[in-house]
Amino acid sequence: MLRRLWVLIFYVPLCAWAQTETRLTWLDNRFRVDPEIEQITFIVAREQPSQSVVLVAPNGRKYYADRHAKTMSWYSDKGMDIISIDYPMAGPWQALGKVSSNNGIKIVSNIELDVDQLPTQLYQTEVLKFRARLTQNKQPLLLRDFLERVQLEVIFYPITVDVGDVSAKDPAPIVVGTFADNGQGYDEIGGDGIFTVALDVDVVPGKYRVKIASTNGVFERAVEQTVLVYPSLITTTFIQSHQPFVSHVVKIATNDDQAVVGSLAAYLRVKQPQRQPQIIQTRAQPQQSQLTLKWSNNRQVGKAWWRGWAYVTDTLTQRELVFRLAKQHYTHIAPVTVDTSSVLAKRQREQQLAAEKTEQLQQRLLWLGGANLIVMISVMGWLLLWRRKRVPKADLVIPK
């Protein structure tokens, strides 16, 4: 019996330390770090209310949430501290504070960030499912307290050509997506260590350095890739109807050189005034490279919108592409009614007035012409009389 007791005393702690995740509830909150460990994370649950713990290294140096070494990342919120250390000092470490007696301290080591390989050729407005995984010792990390606080982002850094202008600033980075491990959206299972994002490549075409990294200080990990973003393979045209019996139209076309002919499909969600949203979907025939989607104008006044997705296959890589069709708003306005009878009567009155004015003008011109003729005749007669009076009589010649 005594021999079994000694076996339990010595063997059980050794088995506990053999695990990659260790839970400690010792009264003095001490834990030993082996020399072979290159990276370790302490997850310290605290009683409430309490401040962040103080971490004491084997050499007695103290670290705080707001004052710690550059090789540390420290995340603190209500009830928990997550402290990651690269190349930690071997020996006994200690956490001083109101450490929870129920949860204590958990230790994970050798955490790695593994991400999907992005296609080297992306397209503007393309949306693709992209995943990242957290592992420890090549196995999925399933520690929910840790996973719930991890925040991963996909950041695009534009790569510009050096033109020798030292005063030019580098373009601002673009956050394209934020990962989640919550079992919602594109994420399949919450808490399984696999973070999923619907990567919306809504950036200007060009060359980018893509960085996948933690951003909230839980741990410092980053993976980088280089990609080229090309212009979108599809063009979308919306033609709004302004007539009661004419349909609204969305036309989607693809580039025949880059997209497989006949692979185009589309899905629209349409919301019109005083109507429930309706779904419109169709696919191209084998020899088609464009689609036309229509919905009737319901003649109700108010705001309306549509949005959707387009699906097509890339010719070069045979990759199945998904494009988001951004939400587009438009407005139904009341039709303008015109009283044709009043318009016709008005037009007839205008024509009659114009005819009367023309007739009056003609009469005035005739009277003016006659008056001018009389004046001219009178003047000419007076001139002839005046000339005759002015001509002298010839002298009488008497013959010799």
Results as ranks from 00 to 15, higher is better:
E188G: 04
G164Q: 09
R144P: 03
T196H: 05
D170W: 08
D170M: 13
G185F: 02
A198L: 14
A180E: 15
G193K: 09
V166F: 11
P158A: 12
D145I: 10
K138L: 09
A168S: 10
I194N: 07
Q136F: 01
I189A: 06
V154F: 13
Y157L: 05
E153Y: 13
E153I: 10
G185S: 05
I159M: 07
A132T: 02
I174Q: 14
L142Q: 10
I189D: 05
T178C: 00
P158Q: 11
E188D: 15
G183F: 07
F156D: 07
P171L: 00
G193S: 10
P171Y: 06
V176I: 00
R149K: 12
L142V: 00
E188K: 15
A198G: 14
T196F: 04
G190E: 00
Y157Q: 04
V176M: 00
G191L: 00
V175H: 06
T178K: 14
L147Q: 02
T135D: 03
R149M: 07
V161W: 08
Q151H: 05
F146G: 11
G183N: 03
D170A: 00
V175L: 11
T160H: 04
N137Q: 11
T196W: 03
V161K: 14
Q184K: 15
V204H: 15
G185A: 06
A172L: 03
G183I: 09
I155D: 03
L152F: 01
P140Q: 03
D145W: 14
V201R: 04
A180H: 15
L142G: 02
L152A: 09
E153P: 02
S167Q: 12
I155N: 01
G185V: 09
G177T: 13
D162S: 08
V203N: 00
K138F: 05
K169D: 00
A172D: 14
D181W: 02
D192L: 06
G191T: 04
L199M: 00
D200T: 10
D192N: 13
D145R: 07
P140E: 06
P171V: 01
V203C: 09
T135L: 01
F179M: 07
D162Y: 12
E153K: 14
A180G: 15
S167V: 12
E153R: 06
G191R: 04
Q184D: 15
V154L: 01
V154N: 08
Y186M: 05
P158I: 02
V175W: 00
D165M: 06
K169N: 01
V176H: 03
I159F: 10
D200C: 02
F179I: 10
G191K: 07
T178M: 10
D165I: 09
A168D: 07
Q151A: 02
V161P: 12
V161L: 08
D145A: 01
D162P: 11
A180W: 07
L134I: 01
G177W: 12
F156K: 03
A180Q: 15
Q184L: 10
V201I: 05
K169Y: 12
V163Y: 02
L143N: 11
D165T: 04
